[in-house]
Amino acid sequence: MLTFWEQFPIVFSALNEGFVQTLKLFFITLLGALPLGLLISFCSMSKFAPLQKLTRMIIWIVRGSPLMLQLLIIFFGPGLLFGVPIWGGGESGRFTAAAVAFIINYACYFSEIYRSGIESIPHGQYEAGQVLGMTKRQIFFKVTLLQMVKRIVPPMSNEIITLVKDTSLARIIALQEIIWAGEAFTTTSHGISGQVWPLFFTGVYYLAFNGILTILFSKLEKKLDYFKI
């Protein structure tokens, strides 16, 4: 039986490996969901009724059902329905499926935050731009965008911090993120058996990373403090 200090380096490197996977999923989700969410928010505000209704229905389905279920459906669905497992095997296939599920899920949440930001801009701002001869594009980029950003920073930081923790749901399809790596030590992993502390220790990683994010977001909020809406 190894002592705690003999176990520690082994556990540490295994957890690090898992955390890399966690971070990869986090950043790829952000990269995909931030722009996709904007597109979805535009569709959900479209004046073309069928598109608007369809988009709002998709948002309802995605926000109204558990992300864990969505992960399972996206990972197993194609194979079960069409007999074609499109994700390929192994960790990389599981990662792709997880990324797709997370991007769709978070894009829907982000889209509602964007929508609230866009709709909170007073109509007078658009009119002021119009009477000054600005194009719609100029009004969006030069007038309303920064005001929107200022308004959505607090709800976005909330959602993004939730995303960090939600990545752990991907272990339902055996993605080897940090909770998966910690849990493995409760049975046997890297020659260590029946240890629960590595699983608890994963909390330190989440806290540290979310601590950094919190600091970054409050810096951004301060940066936008120079004007009031």
Binding site: Q125, A128, V131, G133, M134, V143, L146, K228
Partner: peptide, 29 residues
């Protein structure tokens, strides 16, 4: 947009752009 520029408009609620300084508000358009 061209036709609209014949008229200027000052609103009841000012509608200044909050993220710009007084000078930038004037020079933006």
């Amino acid at each position: 947009r061209k036709k609209r520029l014949h008229f200027g408009m000052v609103f009841q609620s000012f509608n200044l752009f909050p993220q710009y300084t007084a000078l930038q508000n004037v020079t933006l358009a």
